[in-house]
Design a protein around this nucleic acid. Structure first.
Lengths: 370, 370
DNA sequence: TTGTACGCGTTATCAA
DNA sequence: TTGATAACGCGTACAA
C-alpha cells in the first residue's frame, strides 16, 4: 500500500504509518539533532537530563527500535558473541551455553551459536561464518582446532576464550581445568582401592584433546605405579549410551577381564552400567565403573556413579565475564582454572580379590590384637 | 603502530597492512567497479564469467571477508534467524536446536539463540532483543506467549514458526503435533491394559501449553470412560530427576495408591522409575510408568520406558526449511504436523488385580474350551 | 555486461 | 551541552 522508500516526499513518509521509526524521527519529535538523540539514548553523561528525558519519551512514544546493523556499521561492534561447541547433545555443553547466553544477555549481548559435531573442518567454517557476522568475541571448546583458526581470529582482531581445558603454554586465554590431572585422580582412586586391571571406554580421541588427555591421565597414573593398559583395553566410541554398551561388550570379549572401567564421560559410564546389569555383572562387586562430568543422572542412576564433578555453570559464566571484561578494555589473567572434584559414589569398590584379602587381613588383625 | 582510521591519507592506508580488505580493494585489484565486484561475489548471472573469476580470485588473494553489518544495512536482511526456547537443559530442545542450526548453516544462515527458563516475561524481552538484532525470521516453542509478542513480530514484519505444538485456530505458522492427542494415546494404552487408577507427574502447566495439554489429554481419555483423576494425583514439579522422585513420594503419601503414573516427559519418568526402585515398588508389576519424548535414556533404562516418540530432528529441520522457503518467497502450509508414536516398552503392564483376573480367566477358558 | 551514484540508520568527530 | 556532517561498507536502481 504505502510507498516504501522509493518516494522520498517527507509528507508521504509521515503518512506511511507502517514504516518503523528511526532515530531521525525521534530527534525531530524531541526537537533535537540526530547527534543529541543518539547520545541521549546511549545514556551518555554529556546530555542535559531534561533533553535526555524528552528524547527517551519521544522514543517510547514512537516505539523506536534501534537498527542493529546500522549501529554495528557505525560503531564497529555488534554486541554479539559467538560460541562454537562440539554438540548440544551433551548436558555439559548445553548447560554451559545456557549460562553463557543468560550472562551475556544481562549485559545486552546476544549469543550466536554454532556446532560442529566433533569435526574440526566444520568448526573452522562455522568460525569464519561468525567472523563475517561480526561477532565481537568468541568462545571455543578445548585446545584442538584447525591450525588456521587462530590466524583467522587474530587477523579479525577478535578476542576469544578456550573452555573446558587449560592451555599449558599459557598462550591462549582459557577457562577450564586439566583433563589429564582430573583423570589421574580417577585412576588414583581406583588404584587406591586396589585395582590393577583397569580398562577404558573413551570418546574418539583423534580431534578431541579433552578425551585424549583423560586417557593419557589414566595411563600416566598407572605408569607411575609400574602398571599399564593393554591397547585393546582402551575402546573408543561415540558419546552415546548405546555405543557404550557395545564398547563394554568388546572389552569383555578380549578374554582377560578388567576389575574396573574408567569412562570418558557419564553418558558412556551410564551405558557401561546398564550393559553390566544386563550381563549380570555386579557393579561394584565384580566391576567398578567411573564417569566424568557429574551430569544429573550420575547421582541418581543405580548404582550411583563415581565421577568427576565439573563446574558447568561456572565455566559458562566465567567465559562470559572474562570476555565482557576484555571487551570493556580490562585485563584478565590469561588462564583461569576452575576446581574439579572427584565424587566417590557407589559404582566403585575394592576389586573382589582385594576385598577378600582385606577381610582376611581384618580377621587376622582382630584375632591378634584383641 | 599503523594508523587506524583517523588519518585518511590514501598512501598511509595502503601501507596499513593490518586493515582488512573491503569490497573496494577487491574491485580495484580486479580492475572493475564496486558494483561489478559486488555482483560477481553474489554469483549474479549478470556478470561475464571471466570478470567473475577475476573478482573471485582477487577476493581470495586479499582474504576478503564481507562486512555483515554493511551488507545487512544495504540489503535489509541479516541472514540470521533467531530461536527462543524454554531451556537447553532438555535433550529434545537441544537436539532440535542442533538440527535447526546445521540446516540453517547449510543455506548460509546463522542462528541467534535465546532461552527463557519457562518465564514468558523473559521470553518477550529476548524476542525484542533479537528483533533489534535484525533477525530475518524467528522460531518459538509452543503456543503460550506474552500477548504482545506476536504484535512485536508482526510490526517488525518478521516471519516465525511455532514448534512442538499445533495451533488449533490455524492462525500461526507451526510445525508440531497435538500434545493432547498424544497424551490421550498414552492414557488409552494404560486403560487398555486395565488401569483405572492413574496419577500424573507433570511439569508446571501455568505458562506451558505442552504440559497443560498433556494433562488435559489424559483427563479427557479417562473422562470418556467415565473415570477421573483426583486433584492431588496430579503433581507438578520442575523437569528434573530429583524433583520427580520427590513428586512420586508426595503421590504415594496421598493414601490410596495409583496403579499407573503418567509422566510429562522422560526425565520425570526416569525420576519416578528410580524412586520406585529405591522404594522397592516393582515396575511394572506393582506400578506402571510412562514417559514422553523418547530421549536416548528411555530405551536403555531398566525397565525400558513406555513413552511417546517425538521426531526431534524433523521438527528442527522442518522449522528451518519452512522458514527458508518463506524467506525465499515461497508459500508453505500454515500447519505442518509431524507424526508421533507410542512406544510400548517394559515399564507398563496390566495392573496387579487385572493380571490376577486375566490369569484366572485364562484358566477358566482353558478348562472350558479345551 | 558494466559503471555511477545514492541510500541504508547509526555513531563519532569536530566546531560552536 | 548541542549541532552539522562525515564516515561506516555494501547493494542496487538506473544509466550507459
Amino acid at each position: 500500500m504505502a510507498a516504501t522508500g522509493r518516494h522520498r516526499s517527507a509528507k508521504l513518509k509521515s503518512l506511511a504509518k507502517s514504516r518503523s521509526a528511526r532515530l531521525a524521527d525521534v530527534a525531530r519529535a524531541a526537537g533535537v539533532s540526530l547527534a543529541t538523540a543518539s547520545r541521549a539514548l546511549a545514556a551518555s553523561a554529556l546530555v542535559h537530563s531534561a533533553t535526555s528525558t524528552r528524547v527517551q519519551e519521544a522514543a517510547r512514544l514512537l516505539g523506536y527500535v534501534p537498527h542493529g546493523a546500522a549501529r554495528a556499521l557505525a560503531s564497529r561492534r555488534t554486541r554479539t558473541i559467538g560460541a562454537v561447541i562440539p554438540t548440544l547433545d551433551n548436558p555439559i555443553f548445553a548447560g554451559s551455553i545456557q549460562t553463557l547466553q543468560s550472562r551475556l544477555a544481562r549485559d545486552g549481548y546476544t549469543l550466536l551459536l554454532g556446532s560442529h559435531e566433533y569435526d574440526l573442518a566444520v568448526e573452522i567454517k562455522v568460525v569464519a561464518a561468525l567472523i563475517e557476522r561480526g561477532v565481537d568475541a568468541m568462545v571455543l571448546v578445548g585446545l584442538d582446532h584447525d591450525p588456521h583458526l587462530f590466524a583467522l581470529l587474530v587477523k579479525a582482531g577478535i578476542p576469544y576464550e578456550l573452555t573446558w581445558a587449560v592451555d599449558a603454554s599459557g598462550f591462549h586465554h582459557c577457562v577450564g581445568f586439566s583433563n589429564r590431572e582430573a583423570a589421574m585422580r580417577v585412576a588414583q582412586h581406583l588404584l587406591g582401592l586396589g585395582h590393577r586391571r583397569i580398562a577404558m571406554v573413551s570418546g574418539y580421541t583423534a580431534q578431541n584433546d579433552r578425551a585424549r588427555e583423560r586417557v593419557a591421565g589414566v595411563r600416566e597414573a598407572m605408569q607411575s605405579r609400574g602398571l599399564g593398559i593393554p591397547d585393546d583395553w582402551v575402546v573408543e566410541c561415540p558419546f552415546s549410551i548405546r555405543d557404550a554398551r557395545v564398547a563394554l561388550q568388546r572389552l569383555l570379549e578380549t578374554g582377560a577381564r578388567p576389575t574396573a572401567v574408567v569412562c570418558g564421560n557419564d553418558i558412556l559410564a551410564a551405558g557401561v552400567l546398564l550393559e553390566a546389569a544386563s550381563c549380570e555383572i555386579a557393579v561394584p562387586a565384580a566391576l567398578s565403573v567411573t564417569g566424568f562430568d557429574d551430569i544429573d543422572l550420575a547421582a541418581e542412576i543405580v548404582p550411583a556413579l563415581t565421577t568427576v564433578h565439573l563446574p558447568v555453570v561456572d565455566i559458562g559464566r566465567l567465559a562470559a565475564e572474562r570476555l565482557l571484561a576484555r571487551l570493556a578494555g580490562k585485563r584478565v589473567a590469561r588462564v583461569e582454572r576452575v576446581p574439579v572434584e572427584l565424587i566417590a559414589r557407589a559404582s566403585t569398590a575394592p576389586p573382589a580379590a582385594a576385598a577378600r584379602r582385606q577381610r582376611h587381613n581384618a580377621k587376622i588383625a582382630l584375632g591378634g590384637a584383641m
